[in-house]
Simulated assay, not measured.
Amino acid sequence: MDWWTIGIYLILVVIGWLSVCGASYDYGEIEFWDYSTRAGKQFVWIVGSFGIGFVLLMLEDRFYDMFSYIIYLVMILLLIITLLFASEVKGSRSWLQLGGWINLQAAEFAKFGTALVLAKYMSQYSFNINRGKSMLVVIMLILLPMVLIIMQKETGSALVYFAFFLMLYREGMPGIILFSGVCAVCYFVVSVRFGDLYMSDGLTSIGEFAVLSMILF
C-alpha cells in the first residue's frame, strides 16, 4: 500500500474537519461530536468513509472491471433523478434528501463512476486516442455528467471534470484540444465573474469585452 498517499489523505481529512469546526462554531458550543452540529455530521461521515474505503480496498480488481459501465449508468441515472426531484438549496438543485436526515450529492459519486468507465474503455485493445471514434466516445463520457451537473447549477463541481483532459493529454491527446479546453474555462469564468459589470458607456459588459479581447489577442 502507498502509505505516503494514505498519510496525506488523512492529513487533508483532519484539516478539512477542523475547517468545518471553525466555520460553523458558535460561541459557547463545545459538543463537536453532536450529530446536530455540522462538525458532528462531518465527523460521522468521515468515520463512515473509512469503513467504506476499507471495503472498497478489499474488493478484487475484477469487480471494478466487470461493473464499471453499470456503475457509470447508475451514476448518470442518479444525476437525472437529482435534477428532477432535488429541492433547491441556495440556487442549486444538487442535493437529494434520503429519509429526512441524509443529504446526498450525486455529483461527487459521479466523478468516481466517470473515472472507472474511462479506465475501462481506454484499457481496451481497440482503443486509440488518435482515432476520431475513440476520442469522441471519451469526450461524451466526460461531458454527459458535466452537462447534467451544470443543469443542477453546480458549476464548481462540473469544472472538476476538466481534470480528466489532463489525463487524456498524458495518454497522447493533441495539445491543441487541451489548450482549447483551458481557454474555454477561462472565458467562462471571466464572463460569469464580470458579466454583471458594465463599462463607462453602460452598454458593454466587462465580461464580454474581456472575453472578446482574449479571443482576438
Rank of each mutant, 00 (worst) to 15 (best):
D2A: 04
I6A: 14
V14N: 06
I15W: 10
L18I: 14
A23N: 13
Y25M: 13
D26K: 09
I30G: 04
I30S: 09
F32P: 00
T37M: 04
R38T: 13
K41S: 14
Q42W: 03
Q42P: 00
Q42Y: 07
G48V: 06
S49W: 08
F50E: 03
G53R: 01
F54W: 03
V55M: 12
D61G: 05
R62H: 09
F67E: 00
F67C: 08
S68L: 09
S68P: 03
Y72N: 01
L73F: 14
V74C: 15
L83T: 07
L83G: 05
L83V: 02
L84G: 06
L84W: 08
L84Y: 10
F85K: 13
E88M: 15
V89T: 05
S92D: 02
R93D: 01
S94T: 13
W95Q: 08
W95F: 12
W95M: 10
G100F: 06
W101Q: 06
W101R: 07
L104Y: 15
Q105V: 14
Q105P: 05
E108W: 07
A110F: 06
F112H: 05
T114A: 09
A115W: 05
L116H: 01
L116G: 03
V117P: 01
V117A: 01
K120I: 08
K120W: 13
M122N: 00
Y125H: 12
S126T: 13
F127D: 06
N130W: 03
L136M: 15
L144F: 13
L144V: 11
M146T: 14
L148V: 10
I149Q: 03
I149F: 05
E154F: 12
G156K: 01
F165T: 12
L166C: 14
M167N: 13
G172K: 08
P174S: 06
G181P: 03
C183M: 15
A184F: 11
C186Q: 11
C186G: 11
C186N: 07
V192D: 07
G195M: 04
M199T: 10
S200N: 11
S200F: 05
S200L: 10
D201P: 04
D201H: 06
I206F: 11
E208V: 05
S213Y: 11
S213T: 14
S213A: 14
I215F: 15
F217W: 07
